[in-house]
């Protein structure tokens, strides 16, 4: 294979009310093991899945914040959140969960907040886009 194919995941649904975000995460972790250039974009209610401090214990369902915390370890480091979706939902960058830590500085890494025009441009560059 010459160059890695660019595959983007878009996450637009809120967490927990349906299984989409959870099972979508399983796909991302599997795909990370393959030879592809993966990015994940959270937009619309999808940004709500990025809120730090989720506790699903009382619900009796397995959460995924800890798994999100290992995304960078899985080599999924191109993780983006749509700025307007966050603002509309009262979220700031401080609300975002951690997806890994910098190897050298050990500083926590969080999803990058970007504008819709940047996301649109990134979408157009993909080989395929999977909505999850």
């Amino acid at each position: 294979m010459s160059e890695k194919k660019k595959i983007m995941f878009t996450v637009r649904k809120p967490p927990h009310g349906t299984i989409y975000v959870y099972e979508g995460l399983e796909v991302k972790l599997i795909m990370a093991a393959y030879d592809a250039d993966i990015s994940v974009v959270f937009m619309d209610d999808g940004v709500l899945a990025l809120k730090a401090g989720q506790n699903t214990k009382e619900l009796g369902i397995k959460g995924f914040e800890a798994t999100y915390g290992a995304l960078v370890d899985y080599e999924i480091s191109q993780v983006y959140a749509d700025r307007q979706s966050m603002e509309e939902r009262g979220m700031t960058e401080d609300d975002l969960l951690v997806i890994g830590e910098d190897e050298d500085t050990e500083e926590p890494i969080r999803p990058q907040v970007i504008d819709s025009s940047e996301i649109a441009a990134m979408m157009a560059e993909q080989h395929n886009i999977l909505p999850f």
Binding site: V27, I30, M31, Y34, A36, L130
Partner: peptide
């Protein structure tokens, strides 16, 4: 089969169309 099959489809197919 496994999710690897979906991965290979996303990589090998010229287009993926999703219905849901």
């Amino acid at each position: 089969s496994g999710l690897g099959q979906l991965t290979m489809m996303a990589i090998e197919a010229d287009r993926v169309v999703t219905f849901g």
